[in-house]
Write a protein that binds this DNA or RNA. Structure first.
Length: 150
DNA sequence: CGTTTGACTACGC
DNA sequence: CGCGTAGCCAAAC
């Protein structure tokens, strides 16, 4: 069983997930966190609140040169979370070089660039949950609103 | 040493 | 819809 309360273990799981994000797509801290299940030593409700922040912490100390596409992880608003201005510009540049587009609000449209998550096969072999899906924007022309996956 | 501060989010006002 | 807070914890002040 994974001991996700151990930061090193938690981070290694995060990195393994981030490595799956394809070029030109983005994930979020919350989406990555949603794939993980808390171990018994932490209440689930606490984990749900804290895991996204821990994912952010993991991104903050991403080991360089190991092929971890850290730039593809942004916040739930579709925006870059780096506080450091230089770092933020660098991340945006890296994403734009991959073809990711930022709108006028400096946000990425998940419906266009959001990652649907790893394959079910990969998730199963790594004992991870399917990620919380993005909610599709209801199109007024589509009649009654309905929630659909991605 | 005590305090502040984070690549976050969900939730309650 | 905006704003503050809780949740854990290590590192920097």
């Amino acid at each position: 069983m994974l001991t996700l309360s151990d930061p090193d273990t938690f981070n290694s799981v995060v990195y393994s997930i981030v490595r799956q994000i394809p070029e030109g797509q983005v994930s979020t801290f919350g989406q990555i966190a949603s794939m993980m299940t808390p171990t018994e030593d932490i209440p689930e409700e606490d984990f749900k609140k804290l895991a996204p922040k821990w994912v952010g912490d993991a991104m903050n100390i991403t080991p360089p040169g190991k092929g971890i596409p850290w730039q593809r992880v942004i916040n739930g608003q579709g925006k870059i979370s780096l506080r450091d201005e230089q770092g933020g510009k660098r991340q945006r540049r890296l994403l734009e070089e991959e073809g990711v587009v930022f709108n006028a609000k400096d946000a990425v449209d998940f419906h266009e660039f959001g990652w649907a998550g790893p394959s079910l096969e990969w998730l199963r072999t790594h004992q991870l949950n399917a990620p919380r899906p993005f909610i599709k924007k209801p199109n007024p022309d589509d009649g009654p609103q309905q929630l659909s996956l991605f």
